[in-house]
């Protein structure tokens, strides 16, 4: 029950993270690449698109793998704390990777028939910075959890393996 349950839980969360960090952003950017408004095409440049997809795939894979490790680990264990912190850091890098990809300054070129009419540029760098600040606080929380698990390991384990009166010992 314990092993199988942990692995299944890890797989479920890995799938969730693959969906949220890779599949949905991939589909969104693919849709945005060829979206048309009233017959006017708003086109992402191919370079930007490739760059975005690369970083999304790279960090999405790492985040999903660490999510698997994190959620398949037992509760209040050091490895869970470690990988939760690693996952948050990778999340930060994932968000920040949008800057490299050009997603923080999205440039939509408006092309009407053959002629290039102009472009629309959205700069979301400040928003990403705000998001980074929030992530910083999350990292602090995860760091606190990690040190809590590390320092109070004995008491946590005692509580975890405390024999209940009339209960079963899983070992």
């Amino acid at each position: 029950m314990g092993r199988l349950f942990n692995v299944v839980k890890g797989i479920i969360f890995m799938c969730v993270y693959i969906a949220t960090t890779m599949v949905i952003p991939f589909l969104t950017f693919t849709w945005v690449k060829e979206v048309q408004i009233l017959g006017v095409g708003i086109v992402l440049t191919q370079h930007d698109y490739d760059n975005i997809i690369f970083w999304i795939s790279a960090f999405g894979l790492l985040i999903s793998a660490t999510a698997f490790f994190n959620y398949s680990s037992p509760k209040q264990s050091i490895r869970k704390g470690t990988f939760a912190m690693v996952q948050i850091i990778l999340n930060c890098l994932y968000i920040w990777s949008y800057k490299f990809s050009g997603a923080t300054e999205i440039r939509f070129e408006i092309v009407f028939e053959i002629a290039n009419i102009g472009f629309i540029s959205i700069n979301v760098q400040n928003m990403v910075m705000l998001y980074m600040g929030v992530y910083f606080l999350t990292i602090l929380l995860k760091g606190y959890d990690f040190f809590d698990f590390l320092l109070n390991r004995k008491t946590i384990r005692e509580k975890r393996y405390k024999k209940e009166v009339g209960g079963n010992d899983l070992s």
Binding site: N6, V7, L61, L62, A65, F68, F69, S73, P74, S171
Partner: peptide, 25 residues
């Protein structure tokens, strides 16, 4: 990145199967 991700997943599988956290210390 793919190889790192696979390595982490395999490591997670091995570690969490070997030490599921229900053995008494």
């Amino acid at each position: 990145y793919v190889s790192i991700a696979i390595a982490i997943v395999i490591l997670g599988l091995i570690v969490n199967i070997a030490w599921p956290g229900n053995k008494r210390p």
